[in-house]
Nucleic acid binder design. Structure first.
Length: 222
DNA sequence: GCGACAG
DNA sequence: ATCTTGTCGC
């Protein structure tokens, strides 16, 4: 992997094989334990591909649980890695890291538009960013990448386990409101699955997507 | 060999 | 993710 200031840059891979190698290396650092303490601010992070072949990353910080906007941060860059299922973070992490670096208000937890440990190597976007930022993180994806799951009841708050090949629970398919497709929640880093689900539900208003992510997504598209 | 496949 | 308007349904 590339080096910067003599230290490895854990988001830069020159090939898919190298990216997988980095994921295997960093996956051990993921803490699946619950955090203690109150959340005062939550962040929502999303990246949008613009028509001009650029990536526009947005991180929005909201108060918790009142969900009032505190800060929005934007960063636009050229993609350094293509989109490859399972390697999303190598494309989206660089601009997102720049956004977090610019934040004036540091959140106690962050929501990401992608998977956490519900990933082939237990190291999706939310886990990758959580580890690099040493921040409690939660994956909240709009569709499934890995794992088997049943369809949760069509009632707000209903959920079903996401299981890996060995039958271990790696996430939850969560119905955030009636008559909408469920979202795929998994812990990213320094949170338990129960906390992840609770935080997502606490951030849901009248829409399918939790407010921090919905706002970041809306701002990223313009 | 044949599907599946975050954004 | 992107190409794309109006329209049906809760």
């Amino acid at each position: 992997m590339r080096l910067k200031n003599g230290r490895p840059v854990w988001t830069d891979a020159k090939s898919a094989a190298e990216a997988v190698e980095i994921q295997r290396k960093l996956a051990d650092r993921v803490f699946q334990n619950p955090f203690a303490g109150e959340i005062e601010f939550v962040a929502g992070a999303d990246v949008h591909s613009t028509g001009g072949g650029k990536l526009r990353a947005v991180v929005s910080v909201l108060s918790f649980p009142s969900l009032e906007v505190v800060e929005d941060c934007f960063v636009e860059t050229s993609p350094r890695f293509p989109y490859v299922p399972g390697l999303l973070s190598f494309r989206e992490a660089p601009p997102l890291l720049e956004c977090f670096k610019k934040l004036k208000t540091w959140p106690q937890a962050a929501l990401f538009d992608g998977q956490g440990v519900a990933h082939p190597r237990r190291f999706g976007l939310a886990s990758h960013l959580g580890v690099l930022l040493d921040l409690p993180s939660i994956g909240c994806a709009k569709s499934r990448l890995f794992g088997a799951c049943a369809e949760p009841d069509d009632k707000k708050g209903a959920k079903a386990d996401i299981l890996d090949g060995e039958g271990r629970v790696i996430g939850a398919v969560l119905r955030t409101r009636e008559n909408v497709r469920p979202v795929y929640v998994s812990l990213g880093h320094k949170v338990s699955l129960g906390q992840a689900v609770a935080v997502v539900m606490a951030c849901v208003t009248r829409y399918r997507i939790p407010e921090p992510l919905r706002r970041a997504h809306g701002l990223a598209k313009g």
